[in-house]
Design a protein around this nucleic acid. Structure first.
Lengths: 128, 128
DNA sequence: ATCCGTGCAAAACCTTTGCAATGGA
DNA sequence: TCCATTGCAAAGGTTTTGCACGGAT
């Protein structure tokens, strides 16, 4: 077991994920982290994200080919990807009823599921 | 509108996608295309996949961080990823009822959706 | 005969890694 | 003090692009 040190960079990056409105791309994390801690390097962001994922404090979400990261422990949820502005939002209601153990037609035993909705976010709907 | 030419490479690549048992990675497409047309370059595969996607004849699927491609026109379907053997299956029934235009809680206007189920495929269930 | 499409190699990206310097415990 | 962590830059891997040749119309 390696000793973990608490550093300003790690705290800032963890806080960026926790305070986000949805999963963030590495570049977004870097940008937001730099707003609080100028000088943070991209390598640190990658290393810290990997660390947080290994610790189970965050996890990757691949959406539309991009790998995004979000903090764990926010309960069961899904994502909405805006086809106009590209932002990804977290949805707290779930459109499917597939409890673990459900047998899907064809004999597939479902353990978990992921749902992603695509469309216009409220702001983009308002913007026409 | 640019004129489209029919070439051996494009035909072969399109046929590879259409004949696949599920979505394929770029490397798989290259490998299978070369079995029929030796000498096909990776750049042509990328360019042709992009072309087919633009034409709506194929589309990308990102699964577990990898970008895979599959032929279009196989109807509305989703994917089941087996957590034991890693294979991806196509599911022809849909567990969500979200027609285009549905307004989701929060004011999100849904255009399309993607669902991926994870669990044990029939074979892996049988294998214990 | 056009000029689009191809293969090759270089370029552009994204992510990881090596290393000396920094800073937490 | 020790050594994990950092920033930089170089290395790796993947995808895209520039260019001259080949092939479809």
């Amino acid at each position: 077991m390696t000793a973990q040190r608490s550093t300003r960079q790690r705290d800032v990056i963890a806080r960026v994920l926790e305070g986000a409105e949805g999963p963030l791309a590495v570049g977004d994390v870097l940008e937001r982290a730099q707003a609080t801690a100028p000088g943070v390097g991209i390598a640190t962001v990658y290393r810290t994200l990997k660390l947080l994922c290994d610790q189970g404090r965050a996890h990757p979400v691949t959406l539309d080919g991009d790998t995004l990261y979000e903090a764990s422990g926010k309960g069961h949820h899904h994502h909405f990807s805006c086809t106009r502005c590209g932002r990804v939002f977290t949805l707290h209601s779930c459109p499917v009823a597939l409890p673990s153990g459900t047998v899907y037609p064809g004999g597939f035993v479902v353990e978990t599921h992921e749902v992603t909705l695509y469309g216009r976010c409220p702001e983009c709907v308002a913007a026409g």
